[in-house]
Design a protein around this nucleic acid. Sequence first.
DNA 1: CCACGGATTGGCT
DNA 2: GCCAATCCGTGGA
Length: 202
Amino acid sequence: MSELSNLNKLTIDFYRKDVLTVAEGLLGKIFVKAEKNVILAGKIVEVEAYNGVIDEAAHSFRGKTKRNEVMFNKGGLLYVYFTYGVHYCCNVVTGEQDEGNAVLIRGIEPVSGIDIMAGNRFKKGSDFKIENIANGPGKICKAFNINLLDNGVDLTGDYIYILDNVKIPENRIVKTKRIGITKSADLPWRFYIKENGFVSKK
DNA sequence: CCACGGATTGGCT
DNA sequence: GCCAATCCGTGGA
């Protein structure tokens, strides 16, 4: 992969597309959180698409609420939600106003600020595997220190953003059913990079 | 009002 | 493999 400084930030055009197109397109891109003194960054290796119109598993399916209102904006925002009373998960809002579409980020391969992310995830001094830092949606938010304060952040800004990178070829992408849901469970809307060790589950 | 379960994770049996 | 953690949205009484 190129140096991060050589990569361009994804622009609004990327996000205002169909949710499945954006989901697949996000694979291989570099998710970045620029904190005061450190850059946290990693390659997106696993995602799931959620559609507010035809997908009962989407938070937006039953209409706008305080929790999910960010999902109904135009694409290009970060949607963060709190679940199981314990974890945060982060999503990329896609498409047009009031569609309620978003892509859940489920797996990230750490690239920069790895020691900081490990510190966010594990007790100081404990042994860990780099593969286990951000191989799951809750783990990603812990590693990147993302919470409800970051809900609605503009991804075209300078705080949390995504860098363009080489497109993952179609034959390197695995498409399967989504994980951990019971409604609309058969939709093949999970995408991950084949044989990548930072995917949450096989 | 109350009960239930969720786009999860990690610890313990 | 099982289950607690622990908040909040949803649905039924």
